[in-house]
Design a protein around this nucleic acid. Sequence first.
RNA 1: GCCGAAGUGGCGGAAUGGCAGACGCAGAGGACUCAAAAUCCUCCGCUCGCAAGGGUGUGUGGGUUCGAGUCCCACCUUCGGCACCA
Length: 866
Amino acid sequence: MTTDQPQATPDRHFPHKDVEAKWQQIWRQKKASQTPVDPGADKYYVLEMFPYPSGRLHMGHCRVYSIGDAIARFMRMRGKNVLHPMGFDAFGLPAENAAIKHQVHPGDWTEQCITDMKDQFERMGFSLDWDREAVTCRPDYYRWNQYFFIKMLERGLAYKKAAAINWCGTCETVLANEQVEQGACWRCGNPVTTRNLEQWFYKITDYAEQLLNDLEKLTDWPESVKTMQRNWIGRSEGARAKFRLLPEGYVAGKNVPARSDSDKVIEIFTTRPDTLFGVTFMSLAPEHPLVDSLVRGTKYEAGAREFISAVAQEDRFLRTAEGREKEGFFTGRYAVNPVNNEAVPIYLANFVLMEYGTGAVMAVPAHDQRDFEFARKYDIPVKVVIAPEEETLDDETMTAAYTAPGLMVNSNEFDGLPSSDAKSAIVDRLKEQDLGGQTIQYKLRDWLVSRQRFWGTPIPIVYCEKCGAVPVPEDQLPVVLPRDVQFTGSGNPLLQSDEFINAPCPKCEGPGRRETDTMDTFMDSSWYFLRYCDPLNAEEPFSKKAADAWMPVDQYIGGIEHAILHLLYSRFFTKVLRDLGLVNIDEPFQRLLAQGMVTNTFVDKATGVLAVDENGRPKQAKMSKSLGNGVDPLEIIEQYGADTARLFILFAAPAEKELEWTDEGVNGCSKFLNRVWRLVQGTLDACEFAPEEAAALAPGNANDKELQYQVNRAIQRVGSEMGERHHFNTSIAAIMELANAISTYLSTSHEFERMTLGFSVRTLLLLLFPFAPHVTSELWEQAGFDGTIDEQKFPEFDPKALIKDEFEIVLQVNGKVRSKIVVSMNATKADIEAAALADEKVQSHLGGQEPKKIIVVPGKLVNVVG
RNA sequence: GCCGAAGUGGCGGAAUGGCAGACGCAGAGGACUCAAAAUCCUCCGCUCGCAAGGGUGUGUGGGUUCGAGUCCCACCUUCGGCACCA
């Protein structure tokens, strides 16, 4: 190189690649993120929902893990014993699809993806304890799924039954109710159909009441998530009532025959026992088990069967959609209303669900809109039994059901009672006569856990001709997935593996056949947070001691898409494990942060132009492959570095809100880190003199005092924003303000007070460290501060430095700001009041009037009321 | 329909009942430069005004209060969840 060539402008960007690589290696070597051996009273368990190992980190991942890592690093600085583990939710369909496409074993594909992703985690600088890694597709993990399955079976919480269940034709497997979103598969989005299959279920309904009530304890969960769970559990208070079935041959209008011992009973559930006297028919779900015996051999049989099969063929979600045309069929049979002994016709109705209540509904057209539409269509009488205060209802002319409260009419001895009082009175009467009583009904259904897929935990059951379904004994676990299988894309490969299928019956040792269904992957994620407490335990899923020491998770972070699914299952599982004596807690997650999604503008595929909203602004949509608007974290790391990416992610929006990705915003954060870099480089000599304690600072001149105020204020703010409120954006804003204050100090002071300046720079780095760990580590070292920054305690502010000698008081006249004055800290209320009244602008706005009242808020303002 | 959350500059967003718009982005002007980038300085809700200064302003309408973005009542809009669940 020759010297007379023009000098290139020095690169003003700090060398993020070198810095990040250097510190990542140092952290790895010294195992900087290792969990302390003894959690003690100062334990802090911070957990982010573990990822599916797709092989590539996306921005959504970066967001959750940046949030979690900032908390983990902050809590370590606060002296907490932090558990911050990571693992992989490694069973599931993508691996199986990859197996079909590339003819590799899903296990090999998954392990390669895990290796790749761990590398990407490291490049983001996340402080995770990989020694506690849990990978759900490995036998040392999934054997405990099998163990829990058997425990559930022993407690009667796992059972097999034939039921109409959700089937996804694309994924070729059944789905739990929670995995169906508006009639479509949660994973692939294709419509779900109904099939009648025999499947394994967990009795989550046994815990409905607890799952609902314990939501009250979760005071640090977002209201939205709790509401969703409440709605999903769907508790309704109501009544059961027994309708006596009349024998075949009863004709409407005849006297109702006397009760006989051979009478069958149809039980209904209602939330409106006050309307029992208004029942004019009964509706049964077409699948109701009694239907067959009602119509068999009658002239209604053929029609009924036709109706049932027509309904069955219909898409289940269409059929049950609101506003759907009501369809019904008269069975020819009658039942007797328990409160007034009237005979009412029994219909089949397409809108009655077998899964809810008893599958039989008393119909009150006058006071239920569905029944009303049905009655008008099939010409069934309408009978008003609740009279509104304002209007008079007429059976013949009313055009909609009246569903509000009112006074009871046509209800014998209950006439004149307010309907709200009649509810319990009627229920009491049903109970007295043993014809019903109060009851509670939930919408929650049992959790369907079997899946017709290969890449999941094998259900540890052997079917024996003699002994039936026999659980595999604990000492024979795990039942391991076979390696020698072909992935052809049709059917479950387990069905073709003789080695797997053929197994002796554990009971009689006769020939048996293994269950080929595997478990829902949500089973894996329902207890992984417990495995992290004791990840290497080969004797038990986890020791009680370790679980007691670490649980519950203090801070859990994840996407809102799991508001019901994973979060409900995990809560259920925790309660079951508690009842098994394995844990001491009722709820697994103390505090929950549901982070918002990452969005970006995108180019409309149809038009090829930037998609805009109705205001002409670029439209935002979730980053996704299909829209092609994803930003690759690796590219951002390459261009700006992980610190910039992390800072932007946490600064641009509150964690629970949507994050709009903007290149300008990322650039802004990059500029800030470069500014900090230059700022520290320019103050290295002052750093030598930095004390460790704020209290050690000498008073100094006005500029020094102002900087001391600012630095202490920043410590206070970041401490409370991070420690109590977990507000990352305002924490970073406070750090930026400190950087601004230092810059102001440098440009306005003629003489620097080196201790104050050094302390401010030192503090700036400490406060910034949880967000941008690499660059702060490097600068800490360059400044020559003791040790490494990740070993430092979070600074403490000096309360004395926050008290100013004099402060500004806002002067209001009639609540409007009119002036400002500076008063001494020692000024009394009377002094301030006098000063306020002496103020020219206050006087002019008073316009010569005598003030009626003067309010003095010490340290803040004076309001003069004229 | 039911339940929940939220409405603040051009944008993302701040504000224990006490100066609305912190922090940042975008924008305007200036400095440095042959020039650009980078960097630094200044301005930046709307409106009237040359200015000093005034008016107005947190979805809408009321209310409580000396004082309301914040509390209360009613309504509107957006987003999210559930939805023929008897």
